[in-house]
Amino acid sequence: MSLFGFSLKARRPKSAQTAKDRLQLLLAHERSAGSETPDYLPQLQYDLIAVIRKYMNVSDDDVEIKMERDDDVSSLEINIEMPATSKARPAKR
C-alpha cells in the first residue's frame, strides 16, 4: 500500500482487460441465445417441483435454482431441501 501510486498504475491495464473479458463472456451468452436469457427456467422449475412432489412432500420454497456462467462451462445448480423424514411420504420404489 505504501507505493500506492505505482501499484495503481501497474493495475490499470488489467482492469480494462477484466472489463473486456466480462463483456465478451456475457455477450456471447446473450447473443447465442438469440438475445434470450433462458426463458425456460420458470417452466423447468414448475416441472421439477411437480416431479419431485410425486415422491416427496416439498413446498415451492424448498427448491432453489442457481446458475453460474463461466468461460468454458455453465452450471445449473438445483438444490432441493428435503423434508424431515417423518413427514416424508414413503417413496414408491
Binding site: 466480462r22 456475457l26 436469457t37 427456467l41 420458470p42 422449475q45 435454482i65 446458475m67 456462467r69
Partner: peptide, 26 residues
C-alpha cells in the same frame, strides 16, 4: 448486475417475480 459484478449469477429477475414465474427469494 454488471456494475455489481453478479451478471453471471442471474437466473430469475424482477419481471419473473412480478409475473409470478419465480418467487422473490429465488
Amino acid at each position: 448486475d454488471m456494475i455489481m459484478g453478479c451478471e453471471r449469477r442471474v437466473v430469475f429477475d424482477f419481471i419473473n417475480v412480478i409475473q409470478g414465474d419465480a418467487r422473490l427469494k429465488q
